[in-house]
């Protein structure tokens, strides 16, 4: 349980530092160029890496459900529909795995 408090307090400090850092550093932060592009690309690349890790660690039901959820996300952009399709697909497919 101490692990959870390390994560909570560490994340609290790190997140507040990032928020305050933007205000204090202000103009000294690059708005164009490589560093700015890398920083603004980071959320997307991290999320994609996370999804890839979760799907690769699964087996074929997770691979197919991941593909279906991606299709739902692209076509509908709806959180509820994407989650519903992903959960139902993985539940049904695991019956056959």
């Amino acid at each position: 349980m101490t692990d959870i408090w390390v994560i909570i307090l560490g994340l609290a400090v790190g997140t507040f530092a990032a928020r305050l850092g933007g205000i204090l550093l202000g103009q000294r932060l690059p708005v164009t160029g490589g560093w700015a592009r890398a920083l603004s690309a980071l959320p997307g690349t991290l999320i994609v890496a996370l999804v890839a890790g979760q799907v690769f660690q699964g087996e074929w039901p997770e691979w197919i459900a991941g593909g279906l959820a991606a299709m739902a996300a692209i076509l509908t952009r709806s959180l509820v529909l994407t989650m519903a399709l992903g959960i139902i697909a993985v539940y049904v497919l695991r019956q056959y795995a």
Binding site: G10, L11, R19
Partner: peptide, 21 residues
């Protein structure tokens, strides 16, 4: 481990520097 969980979470929040800036 707690460290890996922490690093992943903080990395995702680095973009907040750009938001408040």
């Amino acid at each position: 481990g707690a460290l890996a969980a922490l690093v992943a979470g903080i990395a995702l929040n680095l973009r907040l520097v750009l938001v408040t800036a």
